[in-house]
Design a protein around this nucleic acid. Structure first.
Length: 123
DNA sequence: GGTTTGACCATAA
DNA sequence: CTTATGGCCAAAC
């Protein structure tokens, strides 16, 4: 179903401060589990903002205050890393996940993705 | 205030 | 499995 602003009305899914909301949600993903850009977006109101979840994480400062944002626990909807292997960020993400017992294979796929996928509690 | 920028997603072929 | 396409929208410039 295509999104039709005329039929559905112009809706404000998220607003300013979106990035901060993304960071807060990503911090809720437990060790050893993963989530997806789409799931985080859905939690914030719509899967349509999935891209911006990625943009928010891309804009993540090296350190946010005292609580680090576990950006490495966010993968795409097909259970794969969003960078090609060889990209330093992919290596960093894979290493960080491995440290938590999450195996990422040579093709960038998260082992047991369905089982490790975190479901956010319904608000 | 328009334009560009993307760590995405669902579908279809 | 792959590629292509259209959709989405906050930020930064």
């Amino acid at each position: 179903m295509p999104y039709d602003p005329v039929r559905h009305g112009a809706q404000r899914i998220v607003g300013p401060g979106f990035h901060e909301q993304v960071f807060a949600l990503v911090r809720l993903i437990p060790r050893g589990r993963v989530s997806t850009y789409g799931d985080v977006g859905t939690q914030l109101g719509s899967v349509r903002v999935a891209r911006h979840v990625g943009y928010a994480l891309a804009a993540l400062p090296a350190r946010r205050g005292r609580k680090p944002v576990p950006w490495h626990r966010v993968v795409n909807s097909r259970g794969r890393l969003s960078f090609p292997l060889g990209d330093p960020r992919a290596d960093e993400q894979r290493a960080a996940l491995a440290r938590e017992g999450v195996i990422v294979d040579e093709l960038g796929r998260v082992a047991e993705f369905a089982r490790r996928r975190h479901r956010f509690a319904k608000p």
